[in-house]
Amino acid sequence: MSQAALVTILSTGVLLAVPVLWAALGELIVEKSGTLNLGVEGVMLIGAATAALVVKAGAGFAAAALVSLPVGALCGAVLAYLYVSRRTDQIVTGILFNLVALGLTTTLFARYLNGVGEVSTAPRYAVPLLSRIPVVGPSLFTQTPLFYLSVAAAVLVLLAVHGTWFGLGLLSAGEQPRAAETAGIDVIRVRWKALLAGNALAGLGGACIVLTQSGAFLPNITNGQGYIALAVVVLGRFKPAYIVLGAVFFGIANAFQFQLQSLPFAQGYPRQLWLALPYIATIVAVTLSRSARYPAAVGRPYVPATRRG
């Protein structure tokens, strides 16, 4: 493979990794607090539609990215009300939420976003000096700001989860909520906060798809990237650094798949086989990482002891 092809794959791979990375970081926070959020797919979709609407309204890329955060948090509030306060079944609720999100965004698309007009994506910024390193420079250091920010976010999430009091409370709520409650942690509140923050990031992840890849919204544009983010969290063993690597791995697998399609030897194989790669990789990943230890209380609604009496 030529160096140019390698650079293309790496650079595209990193670009494709960004949405999944944001969503996976958000989901990490949520799962650490003890909630399993399948709704991340729907939140991404809503984030993507939001970004497209904001851009269409004439605001800039930065504004679009910024608006997707509170919109994601709003979705998080809806989900938190259902998962945490109403204690609904998290898997079923998540799937149904995604159905609603698909309906909502497709409706919005038909009403406001149809007719792909101004296709454009956020510009890339080359980091001075670093971008001149061969191969690595053009792939890693000539990316959109949303990529640099996502890596910074991974560091922040790491610090927040493992270096703050809030993080300690978050982990305890996901591991042993009863112990957390007796230590004076408000488990319900912590899980709400995690869902607000986590889904804000998922919303931004969705926005990245529109802002850095497609330039426009299409129905069901996420195409399972939210679910892939869920898999990346497990594959990354709930560690931000591994999650970055996992997301980039999926991005590169995806880019590789695009690249392969254009190579002569790939012509003998059906296009769908290459398209299937990321999904097959996800299945392999969740099967291989079955030994990854989830936070002990994940997926189980918590009834505070103080509310039993």
Binding site: L82, R86, T88, D89, V92, T93, L96, F97, L99, V100, L102, G103, L104, T106, T107, F109, A110, R111, P219
Partner: peptide, 21 residues
């Protein structure tokens, strides 16, 4: 009405979520 057919997904989903909640 000029509203997309997908609006029915919203009604269906919201209805069942409310039933559960």
């Amino acid at each position: 009405t000029g509203v997309s057919t997908s609006a029915s997904l919203i009604v269906q989903g919201v209805f069942v979520i409310c039933l559960i909640a």
